[in-house]
């Protein structure tokens, strides 16, 4: 039951992006193709889970006054590991995400979960929290990617399908390039958060609808 609640919290009621409003920079910056979104989501999921595990293991040792500095060192360590792994095994992803991989260090989601969850809870729960919050983040990234790629480029699955070009749905010339540019990022996220607020503010009907979306 508790696991299910944690899952629902991570996906909907406490979704890191649309409800807690954390980690906005990367959400808007890299969601231009599906490949980027999935890559970034999975990287954050891995780092968040590992950092949560280590911090909850060390939570009795870390002194309260310098906890933020300790969290940042742990997180920076994992970010470096993931950064080097991506450079070695997935150089194309590493090149297209660029600066935003090292910048996961200052992604508020990870520091926020360390501070508000892992520092106060046991190892297993913290690991699950990392996985579900990471999943919630990934889902939002994927939704944003699909919308922006479709409207801005007219394709689906860029970077993965059809040899990296994606499957073309709209013919060239029709898509609005603005959706790939920063403007599109702000507007897509605004609409997404508004939709989330709309569903969450209608308690009974809302729950059903969000579940349908999940299926």
């Amino acid at each position: 039951m508790n696991v299910k609640k944690q899952f629902m919290d991570g996906m909907f009621f406490q979704n890191p992006v649309t409800v807690q409003l954390l980690g906005m920079c990367s959400t808007m910056a890299i969601t231009t193709t599906l490949f980027n979104g999935v890559g970034m989501g999975v990287s954050v999921l891995v780092i968040l889970t590992l950092a949560n595990i280590i911090i909850s293991l060390l939570r009795k040792i870390i002194p309260n006054n310098i906890r933020i500095a300790c969290f940042i060192v742990v997180i920076a360590g994992f970010v470096t590991i993931v950064d080097l792994c991506l450079q070695a095994f997935l150089p194309s992803l590493s090149a297209s995400l660029g600066l935003f991989i090292p910048l996961i260090v200052v992604n508020c989601i990870i520091l926020g979960r360390a501070e508000s969850f892992a520092y106060k809870n046991g190892v297993v729960v913290s690991a699950l929290d990392g996985i579900f919050q990471g999943l919630g983040y990934t889902v939002i990234l994927v939704i944003m990617c699909v919308i922006r790629e479709f409207l801005g480029n007219g394709t689906f699955g860029g970077g993965i399908l059809n040899g990296g070009d994606g499957i073309r749905i709209l013919p060239e010339g029709i898509p609005a390039l603005g959706m790939i540019l920063p403007v599109g990022g702000f507007i897509t996220l605004a609409v997404l958060i508004a939709a989330m607020q709309y569903f969450l503010n209608k308690p009974k009907k809302g729950e059903k609808k969000t579940e349908e979306v999940a299926k």
Partner: peptide, 19 residues
């Protein structure tokens, strides 16, 4: 609109600044 109150409408405005 009610659903846009608060954060989403601010993001919209930020989008226009970006534009």
């Amino acid at each position: 609109p009610k659903a846009f109150e608060g954060f989403p409408i601010a993001l919209m405005a930020a989008g226009l600044v970006a534009l």
